[in-house]
Write a protein that binds this DNA or RNA. Structure first.
Lengths: 105, 105
DNA sequence: CAAATATGCAACCATATGGTTGCATATTTG
DNA sequence: CAAATATGCAACCATATGGTTGCATATTTG
């Protein structure tokens, strides 16, 4: 996962409403668009836009079924995001180690 | 780290330029504002705004030193963000486990 | 101390974002 | 098949965002 892709992922996660949607999907049953749009405090069409943002960021997948559209979490994007942050932290730790060695000389 | 705080963190990371700044800070030496602003393709004042966004999200700290201002990464925010994602993944895995048991019955 | 350097602050601007309303359409269901 | 349900699409709007330019100020340095 390169910088641009990571930025897109984090951008999609960087909204309380979208994060709430992801959280609901992570521990609830499979929901369709309408159910998922409830209790968000905005209109169905508004919610749909946010869900679309998650789809575009590959965080969520849509599966049409009859007149409904099921929404499903795709955890691989989350894992990649976590790995990206972990790499940043690793670089930082390395730098601190090098700094420590330097000051101990 | 609650949902709102996590969203703010991810939002701050959700921009290629800011992510580039974070990456540079993670493996480079301590930089002052001016140095950090170079090679970003935007003006110093523009870069400063992005750095301020990172400061507001507690990803980065500023330390004035004479006429310079040193910029330093604070990895704790990154760790919290990683933990937040990890928790989402854990919930998702639990759900998959439960689903598996259900279908195997 | 004068010049160079590093930064801050404010006004401004185009575009992106997060939401709305109104209406059309496809699928189920009684 | 008519009514109910789930969704899609488009136009619109206020505000946030990501950048700019211009100028002021504080600190170093020769």
């Amino acid at each position: 996962m390169n910088q641009t892709a990571a930025a897109q992922l984090f951008k999609a996660l960087g909204d309380p409403l979208r994060l709430q949607i992801v959280q609901r999907l992570s521990h609830g049953a499979a929901l369709c668009l309408g159910e998922l749009s409830k209790d968000l405090g905005i209109s169905r069409q508004g919610a749909r836009k946010q869900i679309q943002a998650l789809v575009s960021a590959n965080i969520v997948q849509l599966h049409p079924a009859g007149r409904e559209v099921k929404v499903q979490l795709d955890a691989t994007a989350l894992a990649q995001g976590r790995a990206f942050i972990a790499r940043l932290e690793a670089q930082w730790d390395q730098r601190l180690q090098a700094l420590k060695q330097f000051t101990e000389q």
